[in-house]
Design a protein around this nucleic acid. Sequence first.
DNA 1: TTTTTAGTTCTTTTCTTGCAGAACTAAAAA
DNA 2: TTTTTAGTTCTGCAAGAAAAGAACTAAAAA
Lengths: 159, 159
Amino acid sequence: MNAQHNEPKIKEMVEEVGVLMEQRGMSPMPGRVLAFLLLSEPPYRSFYDIQEFLAASKSAISNSLQKLMDSGIVDYITFSGDRKRYFRVNLKKWMEVSKNDFSKIREIEAFFKKTLALRKDTKFLEFNEEIERLLEFHQFMAAKIPHLIEEFEKRYNKE
Amino acid sequence: MNAQHNEPKIKEMVEEVGVLMEQRGMSPMPGRVLAFLLLSEPPYRSFYDIQEFLAASKSAISNSLQKLMDSGIVDYITFSGDRKRYFRVNLKKWMEVSKNDFSKIREIEAFFKKTLALRKDTKFLEFNEEIERLLEFHQFMAAKIPHLIEEFEKRYNKE
DNA sequence: TTTTTAGTTCTTTTCTTGCAGAACTAAAAA
DNA sequence: TTTTTAGTTCTGCAAGAAAAGAACTAAAAA
C-alpha cells in the first residue's frame, strides 16, 4: 500500500498547495493534507500515513482532517478487518463546492446595493453612477454564471 | 466638507466590510478605510478625516491606504492651495480588478492539470477521471467568462 | 475483562500579524 | 532659514492562531 514513486515532486506540490490555500484564507496544513490525498497512490490514506508523510503532530492532522471533512471535500472509507479509516478526497463534493463558489458574487452584489442605498442623497452623481455600473456588472455575472454551469453540465452528460 | 448625516449607519457598514474583507484574507483595517471612502459624502477624504472617523492610529491608516493604493482601488486627488491629499475610491480600477478576479480560475485549472500529470501512472482511473472533470469545468468557465464580460461591456456601451 | 490502538481534545508554546505610539522625513508655509 | 504639517517608517507589544505534545476516549482485539 505504498506505491509512492515520485515522492519529491509530491512533496513539492504539497507545499505549493499549502501556500495556495494560505492565500485563499485557509491555514496551510489542511491544504497540505488535501494535496497529499489528491496526489498519493492509492488516493486514500490512513491517519498515520498522512502524519508520517507530512511529519506533523497528531493534533495538527486531526484538526486539518476535521476542517476538510466539515467543508465536505474530504471523507473516508473503511475496509473490513481493518479498524483504520482511510481518508480520501471527495471529488464530487469538490465539484459542488466549486460550482457554489460562484454564488459569493451575490454577496458583492448585495454590498453594492447597500452602498447605493446609503448614498442615495449624494451630490456626487457620477460617483454613484459608477457604483451603479459595478452593481450591474455583478448582477449580470451572478445571473449568467448559473446558465454557464448548466451548459457545462449538459455538454458533459451528452459525451 | 462634512455632510455626514447617517453616520451611525456608515459606522455599521464600515465594520461589516471589515469583517467581509477579513473573510477574504485581507486584514480588517483596509476594508474599513475602503468602506468609509466609499460611503462618505464627499467621496474623498483627507488622511486626518479617515483617522478621526475610524479612531485608529496614523500608522494603521497609512499602511491601509498603502495597501489599497497598491491594489489600485484607491488613489487620491489634491486641490491647489491645500497640501493635503484627498483619498478616494477609484471605481474604474475596482471594475477592472473585479473583471480580473475571474482569472484566478486559471490558477485552479493549472493546479488540476499538474495534479493529473503527477497521477498519470495511477491504477485508480475513476479517480483520475473525476479530476479530469474538475479540470474541464474550470477550463470551461475560464474560457466562457471573458465572453460574458464582453457581452456585459457591449450591452452597457449601447445604453 | 483487560489491553491496544485510532483518533480527539486539552494545554502549552511559538509564531505571526495588526496595531499603537514614537521617531522620522520631506515638502510647504511662514 | 526655521517651523509646521502630512504622511511614512520603525519599534514594541498584545491578541490570535497554528502546531506540538500530553492526556484522554471509545471501540476493537485479545
